[in-house]
Design a protein around this nucleic acid. Structure first.
Lengths: 344, 344
DNA sequence: ACGCGCTATGACAACGTTGTCCAGGTCCTA
DNA sequence: TAGGACCTGGACAACGTTGTCATAGCGCGT
């Protein structure tokens, strides 16, 4: 019997290692490593023998060991806010394309909008020693990432800026977009416009509200507080907000919806209304063209691409102070935003 | 000067290790390990000292080394077909929830519908030593996974079955759903019904076409070949197919769309038509309720959940022959499928 | 025949962690 | 006070890979 067994119980179903391949091929360990990595200095004949052994044994290199030895993982992490939100599909796809072009693998996970989960996930990725991290923040305090960043994990925030630390960020122009969208409604004759947005501690939500207020102020229009409703984006709350604004003493004749989820609910709510109410939404939505919904569109793919490119520039050694990049938005007039107010 | 330096050039910006923590705290290496892993056998005082040192140094355990030593990663991989397709959002989210409930991390990547990329990605995940793999196939030959499965990587296919190997799979009832959807159109009086689907080498696409044909045959209706159009799901092809079917010698009065992408394009094309054409689509779409589109809905979240649960049962040691689970679909009548044919 | 340079190959340490085993200390009981 | 049980802490090997270095074999010029 064996004297002592230092091996953990369940290994990978006993996978072959380079050592096994070397034994099978009758060569040294390092020669196998050379073949596997395509390094020069191996005769064609030796290489063939090694390849054969690899084939027969079904060997695959263990990247954990490789990472441990090399110190670089060629992997970047993406922390999403919600995998199921269609807005993030094109974004993460764009990040993946850039990563791929740089020969890196993308690992992503979602925080389900929970700051604790965001932190847990980001740190788990750091423990896996990703080379870099792209984060769509759910929380607003990212000091927990400071040791990681100091230790060399390149980090770029996207869609929303980092909270309480200084870091690269790639954002859409929420303020400008909301201002333009609101001004569009004003230009079509509306004077009483409602704003329904996300919770105000979310940076983009606050910016969009600010843009709405700015447009109203630019036009010299008053904003009654019943017309402004920030809060969770669940259907109940949004429905209630719509109802409230339409039945207020001075009811609104137009609405600005602060993001795609709000827009969807508002569209459903307005469909049940007798009078047409003008609507501009932030974020584009699939089929919005068919429904004639006017939106302020962000370019989600460009956000992802820009963030990823910045990340890889950092990984390639670019230093310098963190920068904030702001991408423009596009107003897409499709009908709902061009409805005139009822004749007073 | 140092005699020889065996260290790779770029390490993780010189991250602290347990050894460093141990030195700082004035304890042994293993004691730090115990604290980090919450193992018993450490006095409160020692633990405090260690925690302090961890804090000060910004230490984070290197999971690569841990994995190497332990042989299990508590990580599962998900190979998606297209990150940007909204159908996969809820699916991957469901997988993530189950993984999380089992204390595992989810890594996912997308194949962009390219079989080579699917293989590349799946094998890269295996090299990272994921414990298990959930695959939405892009290709139709998965023999490349055989060595991995033999080596103990639990593998479950979802949405489409594996090709040329025997493996667990969780599918929607494409055949039954398409048959029901088509029968629904027949029940509303249609006799000339067109089918526009994805390329026939895709299993689900073939099954849906089969379901369509079965429904027609059940009703004793002929199927003219101009009414059947499988192929790529790009807008040009689908547009052309719609036009072709509406201008054929015997034009169709209703259409069955084989997946969400096709449905979207068909809806746009039909909006430009003078006469109303009935439509049932496979897969639900956001806002389809507002547009009144009748669909055969799959439960994407249930697919993901079921697949993930099966995977973890395998990881917990369940063995036995691979099984195929088929989930039912639901017909959601919303208007477009209930349009009667024009009076002949 | 000798030494030189070159190439193909292998021996060995190290990456950071965890499992095993042992040593020393403390506390209790006989 | 001796002896044992128990607790705490540390030394050491091993996980699978890669970088460094040493060596053996070869051809070639003198």
């Amino acid at each position: 019997m064996a004297d002592t067994d230092h091996r953990p119980e369940h290994r990978y179903g006993n996978r072959p290692t380079m050592k096994d391949v070397a034994a099978k091929a009758g060569v040294g360990l390092k020669t196998v490593s050379r073949v596997v990595n395509g390094e020069p200095g191996v005769t064609a004949d030796t290489e063939r023998r090694v390849q054969e052994a690899i084939e027969v044994l079904g060997f695959r290199r263990n990247d954990s060991a490789r990472v441990l030895r090399k110190g670089r993982t060629a992997t970047v992490g993406l922390v999403l806010e919600d995998l199921a939100d269609p807005f993030y599909g094109p974004l993460s796809r764009a990040v993946e394309e850039v990563a791929r072009a740089h020969g890196a693998l993308l690992i992503n996970g979602s925080s389900a909008e929970d700051p604790d989960r965001e932190q847990e996930l980001a740190l788990a990725l750091c423990a896996r020693r990703v080379d870099g991290l792209i984060v769509i923040p759910a929380g607003d305090d990212h000091r927990y990432l400071e040791p990681e960043i100091r230790a060399g994990v390149a980090t770029v925030f996207v869609d929303r800026p980092a909270g309480r630390i200084d870091a690269d960020a790639v954002l859409s122009d929420s303020f400008g977009g909301a201002r333009e969208g609101t001004a569009h409604l004003i230009a079509h004759g509306h004077r009483r416009i409602g704003f329904i947005g996300d919770r105000p501690h979310i940076h983009t939500a606050a910016e969009r509200l600010r843009g709405y207020r700015a447009a109203m102020e630019d036009a010299g229009l008053p904003v009654r507080e019943e017309w402004v409703s920030p809060g969770p984006t669940g259907p109940e709350r949004v429905d209630a907000a719509v109802r409230g604004m339409l039945t207020a003493p001075e009811p609104v004749t137009a609405l600005f919806a602060g993001n795609n989820r709000v827009t969807v609910t508002v569209v459903r709510a307005l469909a049940a209304q007798p009078r047409p109410i003008a609507l501009v939404g932030f974020d584009d939505i699939e089929l919005a063209d068919l429904l004639g919904i006017t939106v302020v569109a962000q370019d989600a793919a460009a956000l992802g691409r820009t963030a990823a490119e910045r990340l890889f520039r950092r990984l390639d050694g670019a230093d310098g102070a963190p920068e904030r990049v702001v991408l423009g938005t596009t107003l897409l007039a499709r009908g709902s935003g061009e409805i005139a107010p009822p004749a007073a």
